[in-house]
Design a protein around this nucleic acid. Structure first.
Lengths: 248, 248
DNA sequence: CGGGAGCTTGATGGACCTCAATCCCTGTGG
DNA sequence: CCACAGGGATTGAGGTCCATCAAGCTCCCG
């Protein structure tokens, strides 16, 4: 990106032209990175002090533990994504976050976020707009869990992930690195790890895709998209200020 | 509510103290109501002109149709809820909306929403904050689909619905009216209508709750909450402006 | 060399789906 | 007033998808 070093700014530029002041604010927010080892907790459901984190490097997951010991993974925030906005704004909505690979984060304490909303409302809106896109992803995830079979879920999951990683340069045309293991995949897709394994074999044997050694490879994009019922989305969100400038 | 007639304003007051100007803007937005018959479409996935609607009266559902003819219901917007914010802000995220009962809506065309974001940013933020709460509900829904059994899903669904309707005066302490039928319930919970029916019988025979004649009655709240793994949420969201006034 | 994390495969059972049929209620038109 | 249609609820039988239990495999690392 041009002037700043903020990853979030880069992300938000899709939604709004940021002023110098807003840029600077974000750059400063992301100044002090935190490093976390793969497998470690980032924040836990019961935690008293809430913060928002911006993922700078590495993979994370957001999940909820159930009374029976089960776990449901809600999303896999990757670089440029925010963690915990919902938790800070809504006291009732608390989930846990874990580092999947080694991770670098920028931490923003809750009071600071609130101040941001009050002092730079456009920036706050851009932030919330970004969370709206997260929401859209969660809705797609929900549809998978509700109405798709195991093999369709898996195929759909990887196709969507691919589309998410492509624009940030973390994926090639037909393959990408992915540190998720079969247990994480199972907890995200509402399946058992054993069944995930079987369905991955099925996908492999049908010549559709392979997932091995932390690497996803698509062998036949057309057919796998067909199987998953997946439609590539050309996501052109609205742009604040630009919209008003054009007298919409 | 005190001065205005806007239902949305009432809802947003939880998040932000609105100025006179913002109040007036919302009142005017909701001035011309639209009536829709139960069962009719409100807006359809492929529709070209996008609008946001505010539910004034009656029940609606948001859903997505799948290539195989199946349907997944994402949410049931009730009075005070917004419909289609996500669709307007993100072109890629389009779903269909249907009236369940006879419904009264206020329609706001997309350009107007964009203008709102630019001219009254605090109001825009309050709106997006409200959608953040929707997101939290969708996450709970996702967890149900991923990791709860059929009977747990049903119990959890009605408990959550109850908690949503209580504060707006649409529910009593142990019962409420609910125009949803077993097919809608099935499509929301990722089940077949037949299995929903069986599980409802199970709940009835165990003396936990009954759902008949568009009416839900809880017979043993403690036991059904236990079954569903449900924890009542005291949702105290942050308040904009107030927070800054208190020098947080 | 032992141990653990992650992957793989087989066997069995259960949760839930599908197909099929019946029943009730309400609205509608002759 | 009755016939009829249609939406919704209900129940049974059979089959499928996926979970669970159990075991063995391959790495990697100390």
């Amino acid at each position: 990106m041009a002037q700043g070093k903020s990853l979030l700014a880069k992300r938000l530029t899709v939604f709004a032209q940021l002023t110098e002041e807003e840029q600077a604010y974000l750059d400063e927010l992301e100044a002090r990175p935190v490093h976390i080892k793969g497998g470690a907790e980032i924040s836990y459901e019961g935690q008293s002090t809430q913060s928002v984190y911006i993922v700078q490097h590495g993979w994370t997951c957001e999940y909820k533990l159930l009374p029976d010991g089960g776990r449901q993974i809600i999303a896999f925030p990757v670089p440029g994504d925010c963690i915990g906005v919902r938790s800070v704004l809504l006291k009732a909505s608390r989930h846990s976050f874990q580092a999947i690979s080694d991770v670098t984060l920028s931490r923003i304490d809750a009071p600071r976020i609130i101040r941001l909303f009050n002092e730079l409302p456009y920036l706050g809106m851009a932030l919330l707009l970004a969370t709206t896109r997260n929401e859209a992803m969660i809705v797609e995830h929900l549809i998978s869990l509700g109405r798709r079979t195991a093999i369709e879920r898996i195929a759909h999951f990887f196709l969507e992930l691919h589309d998410r990683l492509l624009p940030v340069g973390l994926a090639g045309r037909t393959e990408f690195d992915c540190p998720i293991n079969q247990y994480l995949l199972a907890d995200a897709l509402g399946l058992s790890a054993i069944h995930v394994n079987r369905m991955l074999r099925e996908l492999r044997e049908q010549g559709l895709m392979t997932f091995a050694d932390h690497k996803v490879t698509f062998h036949d994009l057309a057919r796998i998209e067909q199987l998953a019922g997946y439609f590539r989305s050309s996501d052109t969100p609205i742009i604040l200020r630009d919209a008003v400038a054009k007298k919409i």
